[in-house]
Structure formats: C-alpha cells, structure tokens
Design a binder for these strands. Sequence first.
DNA 1: GTTAGCACTCAACGAGTGCGAGTGCTAACA
DNA 2: TGTTAGCACTCGCACTCGTTGAGTGCTAAC
Lengths: 346, 346
Amino acid sequence: MDDLSKRQKQILQAIIEDYISSAMPVGSRTISKSFALSSATIRNEMSDLEDLGYLEQPHTSAGRIPSEKAYRFYVDNLMKLSTLTAPELNYIRSYYDKRICQTGEVLSDAARVISDLTEYVSVVTPPKVSSVLVTSIQLMPINPSTAMVVLVTDTGMMQSTPIVLPRNVSPDELESMSRLLNKMFAGRSVTEIHPQAQYAVESEIADQKQIFDTICSVLASRLENQKGKVLIQGASKMLAHQEFTDVNKARSFLQLLEENSRISEIVSAESDEISVRIGQETGLGDVSIVTATYSAGGKDLGKIGVIGPTRMQYDKVLSVLDQVGKTLSEIFAENVKTEDDTVEEE
Amino acid sequence: MDDLSKRQKQILQAIIEDYISSAMPVGSRTISKSFALSSATIRNEMSDLEDLGYLEQPHTSAGRIPSEKAYRFYVDNLMKLSTLTAPELNYIRSYYDKRICQTGEVLSDAARVISDLTEYVSVVTPPKVSSVLVTSIQLMPINPSTAMVVLVTDTGMMQSTPIVLPRNVSPDELESMSRLLNKMFAGRSVTEIHPQAQYAVESEIADQKQIFDTICSVLASRLENQKGKVLIQGASKMLAHQEFTDVNKARSFLQLLEENSRISEIVSAESDEISVRIGQETGLGDVSIVTATYSAGGKDLGKIGVIGPTRMQYDKVLSVLDQVGKTLSEIFAENVKTEDDTVEEE
DNA sequence: GTTAGCACTCAACGAGTGCGAGTGCTAACA
DNA sequence: TGTTAGCACTCGCACTCGTTGAGTGCTAAC
C-alpha cells in the first residue's frame, strides 16, 4: 500500500512543504515548475496520491492539500531535520547561561523560548514526581502549632508547605521528627510518601504517629496536585495561523489550553524520547502535538512540547525541541550532580 | 455641563443597560417601550444626549451606543450594585471553605472564581512585597556549598531558593547565620532586604559578610522577580464577546495578556479600595478594568480585577470583586493572626 | 510514459438591488 | 412649551448574479 515510487515521494514532499509554508491548496502547475515535468503529468501523479489517501481536495477546482496520512509519512520518511541558525542557537544558550536556579523559572523560560522560536504554543511539564528522589525533608517551626515542611529533591525541585499540627510541638521535637523523616525517605522516590503509609513509626514514639500521618498526607496531596501542572506559552501565536481565523475555533482551542490537567495528561502520555502526533492521533481534533523529553541522570523528568496546526513546520519544531530538551537536561543534570545553582542579576 | 434632567438620566440608563446586554446599537423605539413616551420624543432626548457626548452613532441610520463618558456617568451615578444570587455566593464560599494553605493556590482559585462568575478575564496580583513582614528566615543545608533559604512572611507567603555559597559552610555555621538573619529581619518589611545592605555584620564575624551579601542579594532578586507576577484566567472567555470577533483584535489582546509585567503594573497602579477604569482611562484602548483590593490587618496586600470590553456588566463585576476581595481578606487575616492553615483532602 | 489541448468546475469577487431599522425634520396638537 | 405623528432620507446588511481565474479530468497525439 505504501510503496510509492521515488517520484511520487518527491512530489508528495514538494506538495507538503509548499502547503506548510503557504497554507494554500497547491496546484499541479506550481509543482511542475520544480520538476522537469508538465503539469499534466503531475496531475496524474497527484490523482494517484489522492487515491492512496495522501492528498485531499477541498473542492473540485482547488489544488490539493496533504492528509494526516501524508504528514505522518512526511515526518517518518521524507522530512530532513532542519539545523537551527546561529542566532537561534544563541537564543537558546543565552537563557541557559543565566543559570537561574529555580526549577519553575528554568521551565517557564524554556516555554517562552520554544514558543518564540517556533511561533506555536509551547507546553512544558514540570519534572514528574515519580522519577524524583527525596534529598531531604525538613520541618521548620513557625509557631507552636504550625510547621513548614520543605521537601528537597535531587532535581532541585522543592515543595514547601505549611502544616497545622494536631497538637503543639516543640522545635526540638520537630527537629527529631525531621531526622526521622529523613531516615525514612531520604534517597527514596517521592512517590513513597503517601498518606496511608504505615511506617515503622510506632516503635519510636507512638504519640507522634498522628503527626507523621498529617505530614505525609499533606505532602502527598501537594505532590498529587503538582501532577496536573503545566506551563503554556504563546497562546496568542496560535491566532496568527490561518487555521484559526474562525473565532469559534480559536475560542474552543483556547478553552482547551485552559484545561491544564487535560493538556498535561495528553502531553505526558507519550513515553518516547521524542514523538509527533498528528491530527486524530492527538485526540484533540485538528492539531498536532510534538513532544520531547528532558532528563537527568538517565531518568526522564518531564516533557516539553508544541501544539500547533497539523500544517506545522515539523522539521523546525523537532529541532527546536531537541535542542531545548538537551539544554534542559544539561541544566538538570548539573543540579543532580552538584546542586550547583548560581543566581546572577538580570 | 452635566446637569441632565431626571428623564435624561433614566433614558441614558436604559440605553446603557440595553446595550450592555445586547451589544447592538439601541434605537429610539426600543427605549420608548419602557417609557410612556413616543419614539420621537426619545429621539429628541437622544439627540441632546449625543450633543452632550454621552451617546455615539456608528452611522446615520443605526441606533446609538454609549460613549466612555456615558459609562463613567453610569458607574458613578446611575448604576445600582447588583446582589449576587445564592448559588453565586455559595460558589465563592465553597472555595473559601476548602482553606487551602498555599498563597498561590488561594489566589489562583480566586482568579478562576472571578472569571467563572463574570465571564471576563480575571487578574489577581499576589500580595505585594512592600506590605509584607518577615516572620522568619531559615537556612537549610543541602550540601556543603549549597543552602536553601526559606523566607516566611506574616501573610503565609513563602519563598524558598537554593543558594550557592561562596565557600563550604557547616550546618552549625548556617544555623548561627540563620539566627543572625532572623535577628536582623524578623518583624521587619521584606523590602529591607536588599543586596547592598551594609548590615552590622562586620562586628560579628567578618568572614561571613560575603555569604550574607550573597543571601541577601539572591533573596532580594527573588522578591524583585515576584513583582511582575500576576495570575490571569479566562482569556478564552474574552473571545465570546462581540467586540472580539475580529481575530486581529483578539490576538493583540491576548498578546497583551501575555505581557504579565505590564498587566501587573496597570492593575496595581490604582490605590483606591475599588476602582473602575473605562476605555482610554486604562491606557490599553478599548477595554475596561475593574479592580478591588484584598487586605489583612489593615494593610492592602494585592489586587483582584477584571478586564473586559468597555461594554461590561459593571454592576455584576463590582459585586463579584467586592465579595471575592472580602473573602480573600478574611483568609489572609486568619493567616496573619494565627497562621492557622489547614489542608483538607480534595 | 509524457504532454498539449480543451471543456468543465467552483470559490472568490464585485456590482447591483431591495429591505428595514433607524434617523432628522416639520407641522400639528395639548 | 413639550409631545407626537408623519414622512423623506440614510445606510448597513443580505442577497443575487454574472465574471474571473485557478485548477481539474479527460482525451488524443507524440
């Protein structure tokens, strides 16, 4: 079914690339100029490609536009990865060089960079909880009945949460509980912190059990909450593309973007290092989603991605995501190794 | 200039309210139905109102639409505050009852509530730094050369930042520095933390001065960063309104919303408890901005607001903001008094 | 297999038209 | 003096209809 002749492939590629840049149905004459063939010949080929499901005609006397199948074929077989220009690379590096320390800021910078370079909507998920290890847990007295729990992880990610304790607790007692918590969780996955955990606390000080439970359940729910978080940038860019001239389409797309947890789920769903989902494959209708992974110490941390029209500059997007992903990975790798964070004035 | 007759006021009010709900230029016949007057009489009055600058005509044979001056007059003199319905009040209370502990979540909930109830874009600024007092500053060792600084404030707001120390520092030393930091800053405004501070540290341990400087400058830059932050919800809602059917208008508006720091500035600019800025007054062109203040312990903390078309349901928006503002104030007041944060499962 | 030629299709554009909501003005009325 | 009825006028909007042009499919010839 998929044994296209070499010429068919070339023609298909030419059509797709023309359509991606022009957003107009492409006709046989346009293509014939790049080939030493007449428009009639191209027409015949196009007709065949249409029969095979690679092309579609909006109406009889318009040119052809690529189908989702065509994009799929293009991404898998035809496309060459574009290399980023020097200014683009510099742009990416420039924010890397800042060495901002907070996970949140690194990621929101990444989101901005991606959307700036690609002109599409960017999506960045924070490091996923399941792959993160506890470095330490600290309890800090705030007042007799309230403490702050600070959870530090090996990725430099932090959670700090105030917790109301079931009874007044002295700083010393907190201190000893801190130690206990660290003994229990340091070096382990944060997912091991869950509310119903029947830790071997009883043996130590039975009275503290309830406090432990409170702390764990609060931490767990905080981490749970964290899951649906996602950074989105460049929504306005979307409206610049042809396919969103219809206000209603634009609106429903924006609405979708506001459902952060759904986006997060969809983006995180893919486990491949780098993935392209086109049209129906996304479960979102007429958009494409390209995602890449950033990682540290061999563990995948989170996803960066782009949402755009199916008529997307896949080559460009892929290389931007690849580059930004690598950069992020470097940053996090450094964190993991040395916690070597510095802050520069802006 | 502004001595409108009672009847003129009534007519103006009727026109404004009709236009707010219909978005269509309103004609004399429509209005005459609500008054025991003929359309011709209304026309005469309308003509006068137009001369006075309260009404505008898109073109000769269309009805009239209110000018910005008219909205101003409406808000200042004609409008009655609408009372929220029971379900609306419950909706606001329901999220209050959750008693979520983190400042960030309380605020983003507020933003969501406002935009849900008003159908406009909501804006919430976090408690402004200048009015916040340091409760405590804690240094936590992470590894020999890195520490985590946790800043707790009286509003329950927290900042935690990793800091790379200029040299290795033992936990004990950190501990003593913690104490010193608290001695210096506890109970004072966070704005007193600034990088060039020549604190009376020399006397204590000259060697630690550099570390202090590092910590202060990092904290200061974090807080500085915080300034431009702002939570925005419901951008997609905007596209539902008539005035944004033009994609380009919609896009430039969305672009504006993405410039968080600018929005933050504009929203924070107003010092009044509650304020309505209409059209040109906003400096943003054809939109209106309504803001209210939330506060605790007599101090204004931050702003909540709504951005919408000048044709906005001012009465509804004002009462929603008023209510949400009060609710937020209660939540923060509680924080200030007792740090009484509880976390419930969702 | 390729190409020239030709009839055909159909969206897009623009001019022309009728409609209707709404106005301003005038003259008459209370 | 304020109100009203009547009427001519304006002008956006929706609709129709012919024209245009890009593009197709098909056929016959090379």
